[in-house]
Design a protein around this nucleic acid. Structure first.
Length: 299
DNA sequence: AATCAACGCAACCGCGAAGAA
DNA sequence: TTTCTTCGCGGTTGCGTTGAT
């Protein structure tokens, strides 16, 4: 088929589509409560998939695409929206540094989060910083800022909020109730200057730095018992995965400590826990630190 | 109180891949 | 093998909300 014929065919298809759209009076824009209920009820009875026919059979005046998006991003029972945790922020930064804008891939490691939400988080929060620093989000400068300032800061804050409630690794709370995927969940384990900490019950990914945070290994733990066993036998190194499991009080990561001493300690003040409870604008503070480091050429 | 700009997020769009016919 | 349909992803848009003036 030559280009002209192909073009005519495409145009014809577009006309057909326009006719169908007009005939069916396809709706666009925000979903109503009634539409949501219709979609939920239909999927509860018939299951998801085959979105175009689903849209027709459910009597929804929407495209299959629109139905799929509404279900996956909003109506799905296990979807979580808003309040992205510190652990999740850290994970997004880490995974994005590895894979770039592979939002759906990143979302696989944050159960309940959609690719759309992660993408929005990146655009609104992360790119905002790049914009304010007047540098490109893909520039080495900005990547270094994330690597050496933002991520360690997140680790600090996670530590601050968790060491109060988790004194030993044996208190790990296993969250293992995701029924929709074959992933199983465990707590988040990460390195910090004081050893390894374990995060809240909502965490679901193991992060285990070997030298510094940005080199950490990330994997979904697939065996709850194994994780518990590893955690109770302090300082366990899994040679297969490269994951290290350790006790809060016993693990020390010297290379990270050295890097931290040289690069972060002089820059980031040692705030007490209460510091974060007084309404300080941490984004503003972070930007100040970033600008200071950039000005001094400290990377 | 009114206006405007910035922000956050839901929804849409275009494209390529995969599968079906 | 070719064509068509459907799906899923990443990029983009538009609108409601919020905060500043």
């Amino acid at each position: 088929m030559d280009d002209k014929a192909r073009s005519l065919k495409i145009n014809k298809n577009m006309e057909d589509f326009a006719d169908v759209e007009e005939e069916m009076e396809l709706r666009r824009g925000p979903w109503t409560v009634e539409e949501d209920l219709e979609l939920i009820n239909y999927i509860a009875t018939h299951g998801e998939g085959r979105w175009n026919s689903l849209a027709r059979c459910a009597g929804l005046k929407r495209t299959g695409k629109s139905c799929r998006l509404r279900w996956l991003n909003y109506l799905r029972p296990d979807v979580r929206r808003g309040n992205i945790t510190l652990e999740e922020q850290l994970l997004i930064l880490e995974l994005h540094s590895r894979w770039g804008n592979r939002w759906s891939k990143i979302a696989q490691y944050l159960p309940g989060r959609t690719d759309n939400e992660i993408k929005n988080y990146w655009r609104t929060r992360v790119q905002k910083h790049a914009k304010q620093l007047r540098c490109d989000v893909n520039s080495q400068l900005f990547k270094d800022t994330m690597k050496y300032l933002w991520m360690p800061r997140l680790v600090e804050r996670i530590q601050a909020t968790n060491t109060r409630s988790v004194s030993t690794s044996d208190q790990l709370v296993i969250n293992n109730n995701n029924n929709n995927t074959n992933m199983e969940h465990c707590g988040l384990i990460m390195s910090n200057p004081n050893g390894y900490i374990i995060t809240s019950e909502h965490s679901n990914v193991a992060v285990s730095p070997s030298s510094d945070l940005t080199e950490c290994h990330v994997k979904i733990c697939s065996d709850q018992d194994l994780v518990e066993q590893q955690l109770s036998s302090h300082n366990y190194l899994d040679n297969n995965s490269g994951l290290m499991f350790g006790d809060v009080t016993k693990m020390q990561d010297e290379s990270y400590l050295n890097w931290y001493e040289n690069n972060v300690n002089g820059i980031i003040p040692n705030y007490s826990d209460s510091f974060w409870n007084i309404g300080y604008d941490e984004d503003f503070w972070l930007l100040q630190q970033q600008q200071q480091v950039i000005d001094n050429g400290n990377f």
